[in-house]
């Protein structure tokens, strides 16, 4: 076995063994190591404590630490599995794993459901859906009349809420996504397919087992 994680690499407070993370996610060990380099950058961009705070997440996404965005907030909260206000390394890798092109479709569908279940009731409710549409309109130049918004939300609910109980449950969501696969296109990040090749500057600073290097060759 090679020393595939160098002792010269700093360990953050929430550091986890890349081999364990690779075994639980679609990533290889070398890709987890590349993600660690990325994680170190992100987690020390404002507060140098090796943990990703919401401001650092927003800075990375928008180049602005103060930009408010409903969906970025929800994604941060879902990544922050321990709910301690920061994204630790293991949380970062496991959560990004869901966005990997090879991640199970079920995981992507479930993650998207939790994203849209703003109040975490186990259902996507009509008011939540309207709130999300309004949030999108607020950040974009798209202008829709209130009548149009109501009509779109009504139509979507009519199609998705097949039990007609005024809320979308997980089974209804799965069925709706199977009819409209584009709904989870945001759940796949092509970048992750081979992050160590897409971001060679990250992998260049890590040590990888020779066998893995030969696989990449």
């Amino acid at each position: 076995m090679g020393c595939y994680f160098s002792k010269k690499v700093r360990k953050t407070p929430g550091y986890e063994d890349p081999t364990v993370l690779a075994s639980e996610t679609p990533f290889t060990v070398s890709e987890v190591e590349a993600l660690y380099e990325l994680y170190l950058k992100l987690s020390n961009s404002i507060i140098e404590d090796g943990l990703i705070h919401k401001e650092e997440f927003q800075l990375a996404l928008f180049r602005n630490e103060n930009k408010k965005n409903l969906f970025a907030d929800r994604i941060f909260d879902l990544f922050d599995v321990k709910r301690n206000g920061v994204i630790e390394f293991g949380e970062f890798v496991r959560s990004l794993g869901v966005f990997h092109p090879n991640a199970p479709l079920e995981d992507k569908i479930a993650f998207a459901f939790r994203l849209y279940d703003l109040r975490q009731t186990g259902y996507i409710e009509r008011e939540e859906l309207k709130e999300m549409v309004l949030a999108l309109l607020h950040e974009s130049d798209l202008v829709l009349s209130d009548d149009m918004i109501e009509s779109i939300v009504d139509k979507t609910f009519k199609d998705a809420d097949t039990k007609d109980d005024g809320r979308i449950d997980q089974d209804e969501w799965k069925a709706f996504v199977s009819q409209h696969p584009s709904l989870i296109k945001n759940m796949t990040l092509p970048y992750l397919k081979d992050i160590s090749l897409a971001f060679p500057s990250f992998i260049a600073r890590t040590e990888v087992e020779e066998s893995e290097l030969s696989e990449l060759a």
């Binding site: 969906f71 966005f99 549409v133 979507t156 970048y191």
Partner: peptide, 24 residues
């Protein structure tokens, strides 16, 4: 209209995680 509310929502910049991977 055939607009789907979830498709509209997906246009949000908050969904675009590519910023995480850009060299700073």
């Amino acid at each position: 209209n055939n607009l789907n509310a979830f498709d509209i929502i997906s246009f949000s910049s908050g969904f675009d995680l590519s910023g995480l991977f850009e060299e700073k």
